[in-house]
């Protein structure tokens, strides 16, 4: 037997964003000294791009894909600017932002799947989960902008269809 489950809730989305935020994040500066964080170009660029990318995901989540479109466009322009003004570090920056996008997708999916009960009991029958399938396809390849576009489409549906197969 198969159940269709309507999934994502806001807390899962926020947890996934928090997990993505943590990728490549610095630890706390040492206590007891007057510090200035090490704010090199790469760090500033990662934050700038990620603010836009995560902002687009937020917009897609809350207001739909159309709301994310301007931010996706801005994201693309910022990547161009990055390549022009910080060519030597652009790859590392892009890799880290891509990793954050992937971590968002991974965490969201993982958390969704963990919502299912491992087994169900209906009457005297006990069903165990035999498989879970996410209905949407998420293509996280190609350019970073395209990946962001995919991800925004993925989350903008408002509900992600995940099916779980249970059997006795």
């Amino acid at each position: 037997m198969t159940f269709l489950v309507l999934a994502t809730r806001a807390n899962l989305h926020n947890e996934a964003l928090a997990a993505a935020d943590a990728v490549g994040a610095d630890g706390a500066p040492p206590v007891g000294r007057l510090n200035a964080p090490a704010l090199d170009d790469a760090k500033l660029w990662v934050t700038r791009l990620w603010d836009t990318a995560a902002g687009a995901i937020e917009a897609a989540w809350e207001d739909g894909r159309a709301a994310a479109a301007p931010l996706i466009e801005r994201f693309g322009q910022e990547i161009l600017e990055l390549r022009e003004t910080f060519a030597e570090g652009a790859k590392a920056v892009i890799d880290l932002v891509a990793e954050r996008l992937a971590e968002y997708a991974r965490t969201l999916t993982r958390r969704l799947m963990s919502q299912f009960e491992e087994n169900l009991t209906i009457g005297v029958h006990r069903f165990e989960v035999r498989g879970i399938t996410v209905q949407q396809k998420l293509k996280m390849t190609g350019t970073l902008k395209a990946s962001l576009h995919e991800l925004c489409s993925f989350v903008s549906e408002g509900e992600i269809t995940v099916s779980a197969k249970y059997a006795v």
Binding site: V31, N35, P37, L39, L44, T47, R48, D51
Partner: peptide, 16 residues
């Protein structure tokens, strides 16, 4: 060139 970006970072630097 840099202070807006630094301010953005500093306002979110944990624990300080």
């Amino acid at each position: 060139a840099r202070v807006p970006g630094r301010l953005r970072e500093l306002m979110a630097t944990p624990h300080t």
